[in-house]
Simulated scan of single mutants.
Amino acid sequence: MNQLSTRGSTLAGRYLQAIGVANGDPIAALGYVEQQQHRWTDYSQVKAAVDALSLGQTGTHLTASVGDSFLELVRPRALLWKLPHLRVVPFATDAILQTAGASSYWVGEGGLKPMSAPAFQRLGKLARRKVVGLAVVSNELLRSSRADAIVADDLAAACAAGIDAALFDGLAGDDDRPASVTHGALTVPATAAPLADALAALALFKGNLTTSAWFAHPQTAARIGAKNPGAGQACDVGATGGRLLGIEVFTSEAVPKTAVSLVDLSRIEVAGGRDAELRTSANATLLMTDPDTGTAKPTSMFQTNCIGLLGEIIVNWRVGGPAGSAVSITGASY
């Protein structure tokens, strides 16, 4: 575990551990933290955050630092924060996207200077949306010496998976979640020749290739590379990414195995991703899904001697620009 993720797991995880062990009572949580004075190297930071919570100061930089440390665990896991060329915008602010720029001309002596009119598209406002990770742990686990790292890492992985799933599953958005960056993309039916399919997608693509990237499932990317050994930069791709037709390839388990998409990243606007909140509950009743049957049933945290943990991140995105800013190869079974 690198230094960045270690800091996140201790501060965010120990904050969760303290308020979880105390069943959400900030005064009892403060007492628990006091007992760890000689065990926790970041004792003073955890104490300050729990102390601020006990005083109802949830908006202070003290509790915000806990959210920041949690985000330090989420960002390396979520592909969203690894992508270049994204446009960062504020929430609830009208945005305008330039779809056609000004033109320049060569003009002879005494000649008329032509005029050009840039074209713009009004995108409207990005609303505040949130992705929520939920986990349930036993009281015994929460009191274990490694609970701080376990619970923080688990919640971070859940939030990152939720973000990437919405980013690449191809679905339309709704009141709860943003649309996938591949929703509404032009499509190319896959054949048995992935390199030829990529060239067909490129022929339909209307975005800026210098700010674009391919997205594929790791297995799909590995199979594309295996089908084109020795192709050089034209197809130097594997499970961890690479380049296809000289364009960078990003891989994620969230991308459907049957789709390979080319997206102009400069057309993606992202808001938020800078605020996170952590909460616990020992009295909630949660709908928990049975992994064997797939059915959900109400489960009482109190009756099962468990604690519910919640990590919440405020984030939203959208894709602007003309049709053809995203093209997907569909039905890829390479």
Rank of each mutant, 00 (worst) to 15 (best):
V46C: 14
P84C: 06
N208K: 01
R39N: 15
A135L: 06
Y43P: 13
G67Y: 00
S65M: 05
T330G: 11
A95F: 04
R267Y: 00
Q17C: 13
G56R: 00
W106Y: 15
G24R: 05
W317D: 01
L112G: 01
N228Q: 09
A198E: 10
I307M: 12
V136F: 07
L199I: 01
T330P: 12
R39A: 15
T63Q: 09
V33L: 13
P114Q: 11
G173T: 05
S145G: 04
S104I: 14
A296K: 13
G59N: 07
A254T: 05
A29Q: 06
E248M: 08
L245V: 13
F91K: 00
C235I: 11
W214E: 04
Q121D: 15
G232K: 02
L97R: 06
A152I: 12
G207N: 01
R122W: 08
D292Y: 03
S138M: 01
G238Q: 03
A119G: 11
T6N: 06
R7M: 06
V315W: 00
R177E: 06
R143A: 05
V74G: 03
A198G: 12
L195R: 10
V107A: 14
A29V: 05
E34F: 09
R146Q: 09
S65D: 04
T304E: 14
K297I: 00
R274S: 00
F215N: 04
V270K: 04
F302R: 01
G294T: 08
L123D: 06
S138T: 14
S116Q: 08
